[in-house]
Nucleic acid binder design. Structure first.
Length: 801
DNA sequence: GAACAACACCCG
DNA sequence: GGGTGTTGTTCG
């Protein structure tokens, strides 16, 4: 086996294939499938993944030798390599992008270009160019404007360019000092030291006191002695100096109280039985764990995982990014201790890398993390759990556009283990599959403490308006807020800002400030006092008079959290409000701090957007107010009703989870809409049936699969004509059963001066579709990429914009 | 994606 | 001729 097949780090269609490389003699037997290697590629050296080993190549020319391995052990096992290939075909992405998506960001290659001086003769000009050294980085040369001069020297044979592949990953190391001396020897040494060597003496006294075999640099430094005296002792042979890898521990400052399994209710016992059976019999099966909020889903997860661990297997738990609050992590850490690795975007690149390495080295058995944690490199998986299964954050919007649920099921089939999809409001796709017995449905209908679900009142804001109430708080919400403030109970106010955020409009002529590069209105940001485009980042001043008609009746509309906060202070000056949105939670850890502040009772009202809808479980919350339930309802998205229902149900579930019972007030302009009405009744079943009718009529999932093709280009005509051509071509290659919508302009027809057209394909079974789309990409990518034509294909899209 | 060869163009 | 900018090809 002296030839390696390699997928190289060039995300392009022409390079999305295996390249053969000779393995140099000294690496034979060391280089394995799944390792990262540095390979020469054209004139450069780049990173690649070894996908296989073989003895002969069909490549007709002479093979190049690969340069060196970048790992000691493979970073991708056979399963993950196969998964990557499948993912690439399934989502129409490049293999290299899929491999990279499976690994922590720290493993992405960093490339470095340097000039090396070859001619060492006395040459003042060369000395000057290289600043007296033997090499200079490309970056430095560029800054100093000496690139042309260096190129000239390369031609003369006085210098050359070397390419380096560096791993972004840096293991955190620390110095440790070991001593082989016993007490007597040390005392002898202390006595032989000169009088003034107090620092060395102090260290040795510490050593005698501690009697440890090894000391960290930090420990020795704490004796108050400088680094130089430690080095002096190393020289004298007291210590041997070593480096060892340490893990960055994001939870180092935290104490986790060990928790024991809780006794299960009768209902929970019924539900967990088939899961445990599947774990025992090592079969693949997908379960839908459908349970209302507070019904004890997490305990089911924990005890299922316990069984998996008892069998010596491993577990993956996916949670939506937003709910990776300490609360969730706490529950897993306190049950499974150091067996848990946590992977989420709040960690630094290095921290993520360390958590990943814990898994790779089998030091962790349970991974709790967001979407990408589904790729955790376990080899003996016993269960995959996806909590809040309906969350759209499980779909990655960038390449590769995969859905964690699909990956989970793929991996579970490979490992013969169960997948649990947990939700109080399952996605229609999942629930429909459970109804069809594709998934095994398990239901938890009762809340654990037998608390009743909170009472929900739906307020028609049109009526409030008619009765002369122009405030954003209905009379009912107002009086309930007053009541809670008096009783010192807590309230959550939820503002569904997605849909329309605050924009400027002239009351006289109706002018709305638009982004000059995108067909979207600018959003007003109070904290910076700017008008900002959410798509291209364009920033403009805030007009004081209307640019169209010069009227000074230009005002901002839509309700931002800041505006609600101001209003709250006006009505309830004594209320202590915590505001949570992108502005107040930007900094790392801010999220947790605000929640802690609220939890400890230092605030009366928690005001926020989406991010407060999930996972919060505070005993003193007795009122939940939704300020405008229907802003999302009018988005051009067939899932708008589903999302509205889910969100309203989720927020309502925040109230009265403990001793105190709760109330929910939902304010809306469309109380008659079924998603609002059924959310008010907390009636998932009726919502499901109504929504399924709508989906059937519209030929949407779960009745049809979708694939969305979006074409964008600076020139409108080019965009339209290309979309037309592609649509026609696709139509000619697939059956009449499929429905093709388009070409039509995208919901946002222009972003960053690029026009956007799209074509939506609805289908049930089209084996030719993916090959056809691949051909489309091949055809156009080659032909048009230089003109700036962009084609994006999203299989099972969640964002229709 | 990036390097480079091939090509076109311009210089006055 | 030579410098400069653009385009197309290729990478094992």
């Amino acid at each position: 086996m002296n030839i390696a097949t390699v997928i190289v780090d060039v995300p392009a269609l022409g390079t999305d294939k295996e390249f053969d490389y000779l393995i140099p003699e000294k690496w034979i037997g060391i280089i394995e499938t799944g390792m990262r290697v540095a390979v020469p590629f054209g004139p450069r050296t780049i990173q690649g993944f070894v996908t296989g080993l073989k003895n002969d190549s069909s490549f007709s020319e002479k093979l190049k030798e690969l340069k060196e391995p970048l790992d000691l052990t493979p970073v991708l096992n056979e399963e993950l390599l196969k998964l990557g290939e499948w993912l690439a075909t399934d989502t129409l992405s490049f293999k290299i992008s899929c491999f990279q998506a499976m690994l922590p960001a720290a493993m992405k290659a960093k490339y470095e270009k340097r000039f090396l001086r070859i001619n060492m003769d006395d040459n003042p000009f060369l000395d000057d160019l290289f600043d007296g050294k033997t090499e200079i980085t490309w970056k430095k040369a560029e800054e100093q404007n000496i690139l042309p001069a260096l190129h000239a020297q390369i031609k003369l044979g006085n210098a050359e360019v070397v390419y380096n592949v560096k791993s972004l990953a840096n293991k955190k190391m620390r110095k440790v000092y070991q001593t082989m001396m016993n007490n007597e020897e040390i005392i002898l040494l202390v006595n032989s030291l000169p009088q003034n060597a107090i620092n060395q003496k102090r260290i040795l006294e510490y050593v005698i006191k501690r009697q440890a075999i090894q000391y960290t640099a930090k420990e020795l430094a704490e004796t108050g002695s400088p680094q130089s005296s430690i080095q002096a002792l190393v020289k004298k042979g007291v210590f041997t100096e070593k480096s060892e890898e340490i893990y960055r521990d994001p939870f180092a400052h935290k104490q986790f109280n060990r928790s024991a399994p809780l006794p299960l209710t009768e209902e929970q016992n019924k539900v967990i039985a088939p899961i445990l059976e599947t774990i025992e019999s090592e079969n693949y099966e997908t379960f839908l764990l459908y349970g209302v909020t507070g019904s004890g889903k997490t305990e089911i997860y924990l005890q299922s995982i316990q069984r998996v661990l008892d069998k010596g297997q491993e577990a993956i738990v996916l949670v939506p990014e937003i709910s990776l609050t300490p609360q969730m992590v706490d529950r897993f850490k306190s049950r499974f201790g150091d067996d848990v690795a946590v992977l989420h975007s709040g960690l630094s690149i290095g921290e993520k890398y360390d958590e990943w390495r814990k898994v790779q080295r089998k030091e962790a058995k349970v991974v709790v993390g967001a979407r990408s944690a589904v790729f955790a490199p376990f080899e003996n998986l016993g269960i995959i759990i996806i909590d809040e299964e309906h969350e759209t954050s499980y779909k990655q919007e960038e390449l590769p556009r995969y859905h964690a649920r699909d990956v989970a099921i793929y991996r579970a089939k490979h490992h013969h283990c169960p997948v649990i999809l947990g939700s109080a409001t399952p996605s229609l796709e999942t629930f429909a599959r459970a109804q069809k017995k594709v998934y095994h449905q398990l239901t938890l209908a009762k809340r654990m403490n037998n608390k009743e679900l909170p009472h929900v009142s739906i307020i028609d804001m049109r009526e409030e308006m008619r009765d002369g109430n122009r405030s954003m708080f209905s009379r009912e919400l107002h009086s309930k807020l007053e009541d809670r403030l008096e009783k010192k109970e807590q309230t959550i106010l939820f503002l569904n800002r997605r849909g329309h955020s605050s924009f400027m409009m002239c009351r006289d002529c109706g002018y709305v400030m638009q982004c000059p590069h995108c067909d979207i209105s600018l959003t007003y940001h109070q904290y910076t006092n700017e008008m900002k485009c959410h798509y291209c980042g364009y920033i403009s001043f805030v007009p004081s008079t209307c640019p169209e008609c010069s009227s000074n009746h230009i005002r901002y509309f839509g309700t931002g959290t800041q505006k609600v906060e101001e209003e709250l202070y006006k009505i309830f000056p004594e209320a202590r409000v915590v505001r949570m949105d992108v502005d107040t939670t930007g900094r790392k850890g801010a999220h947790e701090k605000l929640l802690e502040h609220f939890q400890s009772g230092k605030a009366d009202i928690l005001l926020g957007t989406q991010m407060i809808a999930k996972g919060l479980d505070f005993p003193n919350i007795t009122l939940v107010g939704v300020l405008s339930a229907d802003t999302m309802l009018h988005l051009p998205d067939f899932r708008a009703s589903e999302k509205t229902f889910q969100l309203l149900t989720q927020v309502s579930g925040r109230a009265g989870r403990h001793e105190l019972s709760g109330e929910v007030v939902i304010q809306t302009y469309t109380p008659e809409h079924y998603s609002v009405e059924y959310a008010g009744d907390q009636d998932y079943n009726r919502f499901y049936h109504q929504e399924m009718v709508m989906r059937k009529v519209g030929s949407y999932p779960p009745f049809y699969y979708l694939t969305l093709i979006t074409i964008s280009h600076e020139d409108l005509m080019k965009t339209v004509s290309t979309t037309e051509k592609i649509t026609k071509y696709v139509q000619s290659r697939i059956s009449n059963e499929a429905i093709i919508l388009g070409p039509v302009a995208s919901p946002i027809p222009r972003i960053n001066n690029r026009y956007r057209y799209q074509c939506l394909i609805k289908y049930k079974h089209e084996p030719e579709l993916k090959p056809t789309l691949h051909k489309v990409l091949e055809h156009y990518q080659q032909q048009y990429i230089k003109e700036g034509l962009a084609i994006s294909i999203d299989v099972n899209p969640y964002m229709m914009m």
